[in-house]
């Protein structure tokens, strides 16, 4: 599995990171060297192995259905680059 420049462009798009065209070649080769290296996992037969789903062996605790927080519009929005009247403001979203 080798990553070409188009693939880099595609995953950068998925990850919402602008990448200049003149960076593509370098990024592709970097990603390829890392991917080639992790490829060695293919040496292992894991067909009968269950994937690890959690690093901790315990059952998930649940919270009760109580309203414990709210009315903190200011705390929620105070770090926003743009906000107005308690809303976050972003460039227009077209559906």
């Amino acid at each position: 599995m080798s990553v070409d420049q188009n693939t880099v462009r595609h995953i950068a798009r998925l990850a919402r990171i602008a990448v200049r065209d003149d960076e593509l070649e370098h990024l592709a080769s970097e990603l390829n060297s890392i991917l080639d290296w992790v490829e060695q996992l293919g040496e292992l037969d894991t067909s009968d192995v269950e994937p690890m789903t959690s690093a901790v062996e315990t059952t998930m605790k649940m919270r009760e259905d109580d309203v414990t927080v709210g009315n903190m519009q200011d705390e929620v929005t105070r770090n926003a680059p743009a906000s107005e009247d308690g809303f976050f403001v972003v460039p227009k979203v077209v559906e």
């Binding site: 770090n79 976050f88 460039p91």
Partner: peptide, 23 residues
């Protein structure tokens, strides 16, 4: 993503804003 905190770098639309901010 430049919406609720931290850096925002504007773009011509929301997607470009995301991409520029994260780049």
């Amino acid at each position: 993503d430049g919406v609720r905190y931290g850096l925002r770098v504007d773009g011509k639309d929301i997607t470009e804003m995301y991409e520029n901010t994260r780049a």
